[in-house]
Nucleic acid binder design. Structure first.
Lengths: 329, 329
DNA sequence: CTGAAAGCGCTAACAG
DNA sequence: CTGTTAGCGCTTTCAG
């Protein structure tokens, strides 16, 4: 019933624990004969090293924490980014022999849990995903000196991967201007997130540069908020002829609200989203959007962390964006 | 730089390691005075117990593996289920003091990784998510005697939570029949998944019972496959007047293919999906679908596992379904 | 190159 | 109720 230990293997092979340990850990300073003996015994006994004991002895661990800010229930409940990010990151980290410990960090209690967990030395590194700007977690983790990276820019000092949010927003708005749109509104993400702030800034700057005024509704990256904001914008400024949604999910909501309000897209109102999620291809009409490769970003973030383990410096990485023009604008 | 140990706390408080251990582990058999002394020292030193040492000594662990079959890249890439499931399960498990180790099990190598990991005794239990029917993993894990549950029915013997896939499909098809539809096609999920098989069975039975023939296209639960299957079905049987897609993502793809083929929904072709993901509300027209509460299922699965830890039997749980009628049928 | 021995930090009998 | 004493399974000097 109990699993075999190093000692059992040693006994079986008729060698010392040290030799077994060496073989198991792939050290080269072992006579082939002993090596074979050990390998044989390992196989016969089905030996698998005990990680707890190993961590204790080495003071190291191969676990990595992936920390995701967990929004209140319902919000971003089926965020397509979440799935892409978690999958990609897991794949990348697992390929490097790391175990992924997923932790949600929404409530203050869960933040504490995360801090304790990291403080306990359970993980070799931390990867932050889409933290909110005001979040105190990055700072307190940084203080503990654990290697850390972030997907999405956060407080200074933490190496990150991000896309060019300002530039992407600019390109979106310029496109609308180029198509002759005059009254261009925007639906923002939650303003405590850096990505939201940057996309809003890109929108604002571009309009300011051409002497136009901003028309802003504040959403939270969900479809429902996109629909609500769109309705509100239509109320406030019935003459608007374009809207830039800070993500595709909200653009989807906006499309629905426009449809319900009897506006044609893009004839009456042009819509541009951000992210280029797969769903953007299936809206009616298909969504014009700013493509920023989330999978690539996630993979790059994972590799940034792995690089940190190797002693690399960890310079921020900014991924390029690209406007994908489809029928909605 | 090093983190304080139990011993350091004991020294600081002027008591024995045992007493500190007792206090830290919340045993009640400790004099209040000593308790306070220890708590004080813990606070001053910022002591956090070392989990590796604890696991080693107790032969227990608070980690739980959540194993997700990882489809080839691109497939189900932004599956809304994934996000809902992982979030809900994490929340539930974390609330119970468990750490969630996420593992992808797609390739044979990753399967091996998972087996080794579980064999190494790293986890107290395992939760399977949407495994494919032919998957050998459940059986080999079961053999190791680790507590295990599954979200979605798998090989016999593993306690599971699932929805009534057969019943849900029946209700969908009956609804189409009741609306006078005559030629009802279906787009299935990948047939190596039990859920796909069951939904197909429900469709088939219902049609058979009314003397109609089945029209089947085999998809893989992705939007793109939904679109492709729809095109194919239209080719094969241009006179079809309804389609039951085995999930909403494929229904979304089907809607698009129908639109492109110039068919009106629901006038020419009625569409019913399955799952009731949030996106079903935002299609044009909004999707009629079989609601099965994924969040509830995920939570129930997590609790099933927690129950196993408490020695509860672990009876299968079947969640009810409910047809949500919207404009597409 | 191999083996013996000393821990890693914590828990769990067992005395006191 | 508290302290002492063995380990948990593995790595890692350090001799041999």
């Amino acid at each position: 019933m109990k699993r075999p230990t190093l000692e059992a293997v040693a006994a079986r092979a008729g060698v010392s624990k040290s030799s077994v340990s060496r073989v198991v850990n792939g050290e080269t300073t072992v006579t082939p004969e002993i090596r074979d003996l050990v390998i044989q015994a390992v196989r016969e006994l089905g030996y698998v090293p005990n990680g707890a004991a190993r961590s204790l002895a080495t003071q190291r661990t191969s676990a990595v924490a992936v920390i995701v800010s967990d929004p209140p229930k319902g919000l971003v409940s089926d965020d397509p980014m979440f799935s892409a990010v978690v999958r990609t990151v897991s794949r990348e980290l697992e390929a490097a022999g790391k175990q992924v410990t997923l932790m949600l960090a929404g409530s203050p209690e869960s933040q504490l849990r995360v801090e304790q967990f990291v403080a306990a030395g359970h993980v070799a590194g931390v990867m932050l995903v889409s933290m909110h700007g005001a979040d105190p977690l990055p700072a307190s983790l940084a203080r503990m000196g654990v290697p850390m990276v972030s997907l999405g820019r956060v407080a200074a000092g933490v190496p990150y991967v991000d896309n060019d949010n300002v530039g992407g927003a600019r390109v979106a708005v310029r496109h609308l201007l180029a198509r002759g749109r005059r009254r261009i509104a925007t639906i923002t993400g939650p303003l405590d997130m850096v990505a939201s702030q940057d996309r809003l800034a890109g929108y604002r700057e571009t309009l300011r540069d051409t002497g136009r005024r901003s028309i802003v509704a504040i959403g939270d990256f969900t479809r429902i908020s996109g629909a609500e904001c769109m309705r509100q914008l239509l109320d406030d400024d019935p003459a608007l002829d374009a809207v830039f949604a800070a993500n595709d999910l909200m653009a989807v909501g906006a499309l629905r609200a426009l449809r319900e309000a009897g506006r044609r897209v893009p004839e009456d109102v042009a819509v541009v989203g951000f992210d280029d999620i797969e769903a953007a291809l299936y809206t009616a009409p298909p969504l014009t959007t700013v493509h920023s490769p989330m999978e690539d970003q996630a993979a790059a973030t994972a590799r940034l962390l792995l690089g940190l383990f190797e002693g690399e410096p960890g310079h921020p990485v900014i991924m390029p964006h690209r406007l994908v023009i489809r029928e909605s604008a």
